[in-house]
Amino acid sequence: MPIHERSLIRPENLVTHENLVIDGVDVSGHWSTFITSRTVTDYNEAMEEEISALPGGEHINRCWQCGSCTNACTVNAINPEFNPRYWIYLIRLGMEEELLRDKEILWQCVSCNKCTYACPRDVVPEAVMKATAHWMELKGHTPKSPSTHFDESFTGSVIATGKIEEGQVMRSFFKKTGQPLNQPWLIALVRGLVLKFPITLLMRLGLSALIRPRTSGWGRTQAALNDYVSEVEARNSKALGLDGKGKH
């Protein structure tokens, strides 16, 4: 039985006895903090297998816990709770509940690949982060993150036309996430764009709401990609034992 160190020393698992006498010795007070004894029984043994069945999760079993990824990580530098090494550890042990404590931040990986650069075992932790975030959403542990909404708006545009138009992707993203468009910094940006961009380009960007840029003869590719995306979705659901249950 592995010892799961970190959860044991969380504040809620520490006990300080006001009055405690052991073998006739008074050990009351703050200096004697005890760890609540506990046995971990709620392993999710399927978790590693499920995550490694999703695109990007393939090489998670190679990890030898050296910590180079976390040490190199861009997001860890601004939020120490963001810890790819630790999450890989939890996934491999099946500590689902402990992993889910970080479900609100795991999707924040910025795909900088500093971890991939540093990893001596070719785990590709960046891809593992994406697979894990995806797993959480597919399992219904978290709603789709803003990042997933953005990926989907973007991919939708590429599949539909072969190209993206930034304004269109942004509009679709803001709509999906319900963010207001009148944030002061966005207004400052748009005002700046209007002042600086050549009028022809602005017209094109404006028009692209109506006439979107597209790759010609894309129709067959669009159909092929849509088929492929359905295949991938079915395969991912199956790997997670979600087939037949419908999409969340």
Binding site: P55, G56, S111, A127, K130, H134, S147, T148, F150, D151, E152, F154, T155, V158, G162, K163, I164, T215, S216, G217, W218, T221, L225, Y228, V229, V232
Partner: peptide, 17 residues
């Protein structure tokens, strides 16, 4: 008649696309 390469987003839907 080039197309978008997928930027940093499409791979999160599926890397092979």
């Amino acid at each position: 008649n080039w197309n978008c390469c997928g930027a940093m987003e499409v791979k999160n839907v599926d890397p092979k696309i």
